[in-house]
Amino acid sequence: MTNAQLTDVLFGYGIPATEAADLLAISRSVSVERDEYYLASGQIPKKMAFNLKGLFRYVYLDAKGNEFTKSVILEYNVLASYSAMLHQTPSYFAIQALEDSQVLEVPYQEWLRLKDTNRFWDLFLIRMLEKGFCVKEKRERDLLLLDAETRYKNFLVEFPGLEHRLTWQIVASYLGIKPESLSRIRKKMAG
Score class of each variant (00 low, 15 high):
Met48Gly: 02
Ser29Gln: 13
Gly14Trp: 11
Phe133Arg: 12
Ala21Ile: 08
Met85Val: 09
Ile95Asp: 03
Ala49Gly: 06
Phe56Asp: 02
Ile73Lys: 10
Met1Ile: 05
Thr117Ala: 13
Ser181Pro: 05
Leu61Pro: 00
Pro16Tyr: 11
Tyr76His: 09
Asn51Leu: 12
Lys70Met: 03
His87Val: 07
Arg34Leu: 02
Val9Glu: 13
Ala20Glu: 14
Leu123Trp: 15
Ser81Tyr: 03
Ala49Tyr: 02
Leu10Asp: 06
Pro160His: 14
Pro16Trp: 11
Leu146Pro: 00
Ile185Tyr: 05
Ser101Leu: 07
Ala148Val: 13
Gly42Pro: 03
Tyr152Leu: 11
Pro16Gly: 03
Ala49Asp: 02
Ala17Gly: 00
Leu55Met: 06
Thr150Trp: 11
Glu105Gly: 02
Phe159Asp: 04
Ser181Glu: 12
Thr167Ser: 15
Glu105Pro: 03
Leu6Asp: 10
Val72His: 06
Leu6Trp: 07
Arg184Trp: 12
Tyr38Ala: 03
Ile26Asp: 12
Lys47Val: 01
Thr2Phe: 06
Pro107Glu: 04
Lys138Met: 10
Gln169Arg: 15
Asn77Phe: 08
Leu98Thr: 04
Met48Ile: 01
Tyr92Ala: 08
Asn77Trp: 08
Gln102Gly: 02
Val72Lys: 03
Met48Ala: 04
Leu145Val: 06
Ala97Glu: 10
Tyr58Leu: 10
Glu19Asn: 10
Phe133Met: 12
Ile170Pro: 01
Asp22Pro: 01
Thr69Met: 09
Gly54Ile: 04
Ser173Ala: 08
His87Gly: 03
Thr18Leu: 09
Asn66Gln: 13
Val171Thr: 12
Arg139Val: 00
Pro160Gln: 15
Thr150Ile: 14
Lys46Ile: 00
Lys188Leu: 15
Leu125Tyr: 14
Gln102His: 12
Tyr58Gly: 02
Ser31Met: 12
Gly54Leu: 10
Leu123Ala: 09
Arg141Ser: 06
Arg165His: 15
Leu10Glu: 06
Val9Met: 09
Val135His: 11
Gln96Arg: 15
Thr7Cys: 04
Pro45His: 05
Gly54Asn: 08
Lys53Met: 07
Asp142Tyr: 06
Leu52Ser: 02
Ile185Trp: 05
Phe159His: 14
Cys134Phe: 14
Met1Phe: 09
Leu123Arg: 13
Tyr13Gln: 03
Lys187Val: 08
Lys131His: 13
Arg165Trp: 09
Leu144Tyr: 05
Val171Pro: 03
Arg119Asp: 15
Ser71Gln: 14
Glu36Cys: 01
Ala97Cys: 13
Glu67Met: 10
Ala172Tyr: 08
Gly132Asn: 14
Arg151Pro: 00
Arg151Leu: 01
Leu79Gly: 04
Arg57Leu: 04
Ile126Asn: 09
Ala4Arg: 14
Gln102Asn: 11
Lys47Pro: 01
Leu182Ala: 14
Ala4Ser: 15
Gly176Ser: 09
Val59Thr: 03
Gly14Ser: 05
Thr7Arg: 07
Gly176Gln: 08
Tyr38Pro: 01
Lys70Val: 00
Ser29Trp: 01
Thr7Met: 07
Asn51Pro: 00
Lys188Cys: 10
Arg186Gly: 05
Arg151Gly: 00
Ser101Gly: 08
Ile170Ala: 02
Glu140His: 06
Phe124Gly: 00
Arg34Val: 01
Arg28Trp: 03
Asp100Trp: 13
Ile44Arg: 11
Gly65Arg: 11
Met85Arg: 04
Ser31Tyr: 11
Trp121His: 09
Leu74Tyr: 04
Ala148Leu: 12
Asp142Pro: 00
